[in-house]
Design a protein around this nucleic acid. Sequence first.
DNA 1: CTGAAAGCGCTTACAG
DNA 2: CTGAAAGCGCTTACAG
Lengths: 342, 342
Amino acid sequence: MRKVTLSTIAEELGVSTATVSLALRDSPLVADATKERIKEAASRSGYIYNRRAASLRTSRSGIIGVVVPDIMNPFFAEILVGIEEELGSSRHTFILCNHRDKIAAQQNFIETLLQFGADGVILSPAIGTTADDIRAIESSGLPVVFVARWVKGARVPVFRGDDKKGAYMVTRHLIEMGHRKIAFIGGKRETSTGNDRREGFLAALEQAGIEAVPELRIGSERTRKAGYDAARTMFSKDREAATAIVCFNDLLAIGVMSGLRSLGIEPGRDVAVAGYDDIAEAEISAPTLTSVWNGQQEAGRLAARAMVRILTGSVSEEDAHDDRLIQPELRIRESSCPPKPV
Amino acid sequence: MRKVTLSTIAEELGVSTATVSLALRDSPLVADATKERIKEAASRSGYIYNRRAASLRTSRSGIIGVVVPDIMNPFFAEILVGIEEELGSSRHTFILCNHRDKIAAQQNFIETLLQFGADGVILSPAIGTTADDIRAIESSGLPVVFVARWVKGARVPVFRGDDKKGAYMVTRHLIEMGHRKIAFIGGKRETSTGNDRREGFLAALEQAGIEAVPELRIGSERTRKAGYDAARTMFSKDREAATAIVCFNDLLAIGVMSGLRSLGIEPGRDVAVAGYDDIAEAEISAPTLTSVWNGQQEAGRLAARAMVRILTGSVSEEDAHDDRLIQPELRIRESSCPPKPV
DNA sequence: CTGAAAGCGCTTACAG
DNA sequence: CTGAAAGCGCTTACAG
């Protein structure tokens, strides 16, 4: 079985390849009857549209790159769901990369995208990405949109939750319950999210006149395991190191709860714990986890939509800067108990 | 800045495009001095290799499709890690799809892969995929390798753990601890894994002369939430519905433990719980979770390696059938306690 | 060791 | 409404 191309069909029907091409894309230039015959022949012969050829000719590939730190992290997985939903309805295919906060991996993938002639990239930049890096990508002809994280100085639309405000809200909630010794676990100073959430935390303390104790802040990876370890480190020598813990994200918070329990400290009774992101698991953990809804699906959807707009030219890249922050919402659950009476 | 192509460089240096092409790919046909000049000019001018053009000419794209039910599930995420590791060293790029057990989504993506001229696909087939579907893919020129799941009747290499044996092992472990009322939660009859694990479970019961009680088997999604719900359904009316629970996977088991706890039943003390897959979380849950190591990273790696072998022609597709099952290992932890004395 | 030429399979003006 | 022709940027025989 020889490969079927436009010209195979053209020959068979005695028309030109131009007509076949137009017909298959439903151009109004082609007579309906001709279209019918052509489409019928195409599907009968098992014709497969060759995107490489089309893309070479038009210099549009229909590929959008999506670059995130780690798909295994539910936070980014939910962003992806949003992107997937939004892109599903357009004619774009997305191809995915985990950079795991390695600049080299990110660079490498961008290079691959350029080679494939990708139309754009939705990026949650790796730690260490500079505004110059972003400019370089854009000047290679690859429009960029940020999601979740952003890079200072880069003039690129960014779609994300208001991390500072959310962290402020959850910290304030714990303070209102009566907590004064509040720890902050996780997040890295080098990421915009890490910074913003930490700032929100500190702002709430300051506003309440609580002094920030450096020992009560532990940076870490963003995994369950890191939370588990951090909790054990913080509470193994002093079981009253803190009465409440704000975690950088839910994954960490779940790990923290597990770590506390392994020391015989019951989260939601002996120590209050709060997470961030409101991933699906927060609702079914035991105790259920107080968290901050951060709109990651929404962020993914908005980022994808902005990208499609840029690509279809319905909006200039300048105008795509409608990057209002998504407003976070506090989700109070069992894990944020009041402090134990002394 | 005009786009730089092979001919831009060729003109600049006064050589032919053939020579430039050869030089950039390090062909021994080109003199070292010429190579030097060409490479220098390429990197200086910011030349970007156009894979679409190359691929159109050679009809090899360097793309491998990876199609799994759900990347958010750590089981598949770990398979992906294996694939990523293995493919990292070859010159292949992979593009990913979640089919979420929707045949249409799977079909759609295969179509996209064909349009991009993908070289092959590593597939964990959606429920309902038939041997004919697989044959159709292969006869379109896309070699297939299965990972984790397989399709009966399809002559395709498959890389996966021995699910039946693993489920047998963990069930047997619980029986040896003295359990007789053992439930099985999760998995779908329609997937090969669901079937195999269920069979292993039943085989262990039968061998121990324990009658299988249909009420003690609940099929379900493969999520934490489903486990949570199933546990509550099973134990809310009868707190002694079972003394031990074998779960289709760890995600479910973690949900089950959470569900039990929400009813005031302590997993690992009142009821034994075991999972499957030995995901990273099993080790840090509280109680730590007894599970079966299933070698998913290994499976991913082997599948990717087999695919690369098929593509480089170092092995015929027939010979790639070295699909020995990965031997599962039992990981006994706190959650599998003996039955409570009556 | 290097070059001229053809061709992969599309789409896009242009002409009719 | 349809066709002939050029060209996207590579690679691959082939000739020298």
